[in-house]
Simulated assay, not measured.
Amino acid sequence: MNMQQIKRFLGYFIGMLLFFAPFAYYQKALSTWLGGPQATDIHEFCLRIPLLNLLTGKSMEILSVGFISLFLLVSVAFLFGPVFCGRFCASGALPEYLSKFLPNKYKIDWQKSVNPVPIRYGFFIGYLISPFLAGSIACALCNYNMMEKLIVGGVQGDIGPLLSTAIITAILWLGIFGIMAKGGRGFCSYLCPVGALQSAIHSLGARIGFTYKLRFIERKCVACKQCVKQCPMGALSYQDGALSYEIYNCITCRQCETVCSKKAISYGTGERGWQKECLSKDVALESTK
Rank of each mutant, 00 (worst) to 15 (best):
M60Q: 14
E96A: 04
Y212K: 15
P50A: 01
I159H: 02
P131N: 08
A181E: 01
H43C: 03
T211C: 09
F84G: 06
N249H: 03
G92Y: 04
T40Q: 09
Q38G: 02
M147D: 01
G270D: 13
G184I: 06
A134I: 06
N2P: 04
N143T: 09
I108Q: 05
G154Q: 08
I119E: 05
D109G: 00
D282H: 03
S189F: 03
F187H: 15
G241H: 09
R8A: 11
N143A: 15
E61L: 14
A140V: 14
R254K: 15
R48L: 10
A223M: 04
V155K: 02
A93V: 09
S31N: 02
F132W: 13
T269R: 13
L141V: 08
I179R: 03
L197V: 01
V83K: 10
S237T: 11
F124V: 09
M60G: 10
F78E: 06
V65K: 02
K289A: 08
V155I: 14
L191H: 09
V228M: 08
I137L: 13
H43P: 00
T56D: 06
I265D: 11
A235Y: 00
G154W: 06
S280L: 14
V83W: 01
I129A: 09
C89Y: 14
S130V: 01
D41E: 12
E277V: 11
I201L: 06
A140E: 03
Q255F: 12
G184K: 02
C224G: 08
P116T: 03
A235G: 14
T211P: 04
S99E: 07
C142T: 05
N249R: 14
T56N: 12
M16H: 01
L73Y: 15
C192P: 10
G86C: 03
I265F: 00
